[in-house]
């Protein structure tokens, strides 16, 4: 079993955005991994490891399309426990989602993977499309917005609890397949691989890299390839031509009591 985990670098979401000349200026941002990809990595590691046993059930390959010189996020994922990495050396800000998905599909084929786990959304540009596109390009079934994942190794399938608008859908997909993960996949009991005891409680959230993990990450194999090596043409069919901050909300007021609040909602705001 080979699991491919994709990670996008994004500007630190805790830092303010910079606008200049009617576009977003990302020239001086601090790059961090997309949070949903950390969740994807945690999911992959929970599937791959046998807690209480010794064998590893899957190899976890990390991949990112990013300038090869700015791949700290990839190193971080190797330190979390990824086995090796593929970096597609290109500035992804200049690529559309289709090109990114084509690159992912090409790496999938080169590595003969069985499962792609991606974040459901890049927190910066909020496309919510790359995993689905990769699945379509590869002709594979998909389970997006996963909150729970259970792997049936005998049947070679996954049963995924998906966050949908009106509840949780349970979807069974045969491997090979594509999964995109939502927030709750990192709760303590969300991922089951049939080897780790079903009642094992993982620590909530994506794991932090251990000191040993950080040392080992430096020795792990990282393949750097170009889009051309993968036979993918660089393109951007949906460029952003303008960016601006949203209009600010008019300032509000602090009320001193519930009575004053109700009075104002009724007479001033007229919503009661």
């Amino acid at each position: 079993m080979k699991i491919l985990v994709t990670v996008k670098r994004i500007p630190d979401p805790d830092e303010p955005l910079k606008f200049s000349g009617g576009v977003l200026d990302t020239s001086a941002v601090k790059w961090v991994p997309n949070t949903f990809d950390e969740y994807a990595m945690e999911t992959a590691l929970r599937l791959a490891e046998h807690v209480g046993g010794s064998q590893r059930l899957a190899e976890v390959i990390v991949m990112s399309i990013c300038p090869a010189g700015q791949r700290q996020h990839v190193t971080q994922f190797l330190a979390m426990g990824g086995d090796r990495a593929v970096v597609v050396d290109h500035d992804d800000r200049a690529l559309d989602a289709q090109t990114v998905a084509e690159a992912i599909a090409a790496v999938w084929k080169r590595e003969s993977c069985d499962l792609l786990i991606a974040g459901k959304l890049a927190q910066d540009m909020e496309g919510n499309e790359v995993a689905q596109r990769a699945a379509a390009l590869l002709g594979l079934p998909q389970a997006t917005f996963a909150a729970t994942v259970a792997w049936d190794r005998e049947a070679g399938s996954l049963t995924v609890g998906r966050e949908v608008d009106d509840g949780v859908e349970s979807k069974k997909i045969p491997l090979p397949a594509v999964v995109s993960v939502d927030l709750r996949v990192v709760l303590p009991h969300s991922v089951k691989n049939g080897a780790t005891p079903d009642d094992h409680a993982y620590q909530e959230g994506p794991r932090l890299a251990s000191l040993r993990g950080i040392t080992m990450a430096k020795r792990k194999k990282v393949d750097v390839v170009s889009l051309a090596d993968l036979g993918v043409e660089a393109k951007n069919t949906s460029p952003i031509v303008h960016a601006e901050p949203p209009p600010p909300r008019p300032p509000g007021q602090i009320v001193e009591s519930v009575d004053e609040l109700v009075e104002k909602l009724a007479t001033e705001a007229k919503v009661l």
């Binding site: 289709q98 909020e126 919510n128 499309e129 596109r133 699945a135 379509a136 998909q142 608008d165 949906s238």
Partner: peptide
């Protein structure tokens, strides 16, 4: 942009090699 269209439209977009603008 419902959970269903966010699930299915990107697949169609990929098959059409077409861009998708979300939300």
């Amino acid at each position: 942009a419902t959970s269903s269209s966010r699930d299915a439209l990107p697949r169609a977009a990929a098959m059409l090699r077409a861009p998708l603008v979300s939300e």
